[in-house]
């Protein structure tokens, strides 16, 4: 092994340590919501003893104890600071995390495996908000999110409309000419199909775009690249071969910010969900209410729920405080089944 090779290994290990430290900080921040005081001396003593006992070989107990004392101090400082906790589905670097950053640059973004995990953690009070993709200009409605939205008690407090810029990223220093395989979420691979063909790459499906970037950092497989966000490239310390490789220039995703309480400020856009009666003209009668009040519908989407039953999602311009909106909402609530105002909020286009 050469000095250069050893140092490269050390850099990779450092990246692992930092990433794990980040995960530890996230868990520590969440414990704040489940314990009475920030300081818990019994728990601190347990952690430090455990760490000292588990130290082996070149890692001396005194050293690891000192190191973790520092980590605990930092954890407590962060709990005191108590940033807004925003959950999202995917790995760090996912487009949902970019939406969180666009919404509130200081929020702590916490990754979750599934969309249901995001909804549950916000409902239970573990997270302050959840940020979920609702629809994409190329891929359409995000089915799993729509199903969860139909049943949730959460409110939409804001929306973010974000451009989706896919990047081809590779392990640092890798020769772009050696790239053969490209890993990403099937949706992202589909959005970059022409780029992939042009450069004669082999697409390989992965569960998440940012997850593929993380895999590159951890395993650095030969001849492999990933398609993910610019943020993912930054987080996992990878090189960007090319930005903006999606085939269509207009690729945007709309995200909802969900919370337990309604938005405090007055919004200019509303989202509702309902079921229409299973008879002729039922949906038309609901739509007619909004047309008569001259409310501009910006989205209407029907999502299959139970067999033969559809949840209908509708967005329109206006504030829930305005009289015409109130009148339309009241009338619609008595006409449609399970009619619910998901939220009145402001939407920001990035």
């Amino acid at each position: 092994m050469t000095l250069e090779e050893l140092r490269k290994d050390i850099d990779t290990i450092d990246a692992h340590i930092l990433s794990l430290l980040g995960s530890r900080m996230e868990k520590a921040l969440l414990t704040r919501r489940l314990k009475a005081d920030i300081r818990d001396s019994d728990r601190e003593a347990f952690v430090l003893t455990h760490i000292a006992n588990a130290s082996r070989g070149l890692v001396k107990p005194a050293f690891s104890r000192e190191l973790f004392e520092r980590v605990i101090v930092e954890s407590k400082a962060m709990q005191t600071e108590n940033p807004v906790v925003a959950g999202f589905q995917g790995e760090h670097g996912a487009f949902s995390e970019m939406a969180i950053r666009a919404w509130d640059g200081k929020a702590a973004a916490i990754p979750c495996r599934e969309f249901e995990d995001v909804f549950e953690a916000v409902e239970s009070g573990l997270f302050d908000v959840g940020v979920v993709p609702v629809e994409n200009t190329l891929g359409g409605v995000v089915g799993a999110v729509a199903s969860a939205l139909a049943y949730t008690s959460l409110h939409v407090v804001a929306a973010i409309d974000l451009p989706v810029e896919h990047c081809l990223i590779s392990p640092p220093g890798a020769d772009h000419r050696e790239i053969r395989t490209v890993y990403s979420h099937p949706q992202a691979l589909a959005q970059c199909r022409r780029f992939i063909e042009r450069n004669r790459l082999r697409p390989e499906a992965y569960y998440d775009t940012a997850g593929a970037a993380r895999m590159l950092q951890e395993n650095a497989p030969a001849g492999a690249a990933a398609i993910a966000s610019r943020l993912a490239a930054e987080i996992y310390d990878l090189d960007i071969i090319k930005e903006g490789i999606q085939d269509a220039s207009i690729n945007r995703t709309r995200f909802f910010i969900l919370a337990r309480e309604k938005a405090r400020d007055e919004g200019d856009k509303c989202s509702v969900v309902f079921r229409a009666e299973d008879k002729a003209g039922a949906l038309f009668k609901v739509l007619e209410l909004f047309a008569k009040k001259e409310l501009n519908l910006t989205r209407i989407e029907s999502v299959p729920d139970k067999p033969g039953d559809y949840a209908i999602f509708m967005d329109f311009e206006g504030s829930a405080g305005d009289d015409p909106v109130k009148a339309a909402l009241d009338a619609a609530a008595s006409l449609a089944r399970d009619f619910r105002l998901l939220g009145c909020y402001r939407e920001r286009k990035i």
């Binding site: 772009h176 000419r177 780029f195 042009r198 071969i241």
Partner: peptide, 12 residues
């Protein structure tokens, strides 16, 4: 200058 670079240079 390299056949392996043609598609990549063409991207830019």
């Amino acid at each position: 200058i390299d056949t392996r670079d043609v598609s990549w240079v063409g991207e830019y």
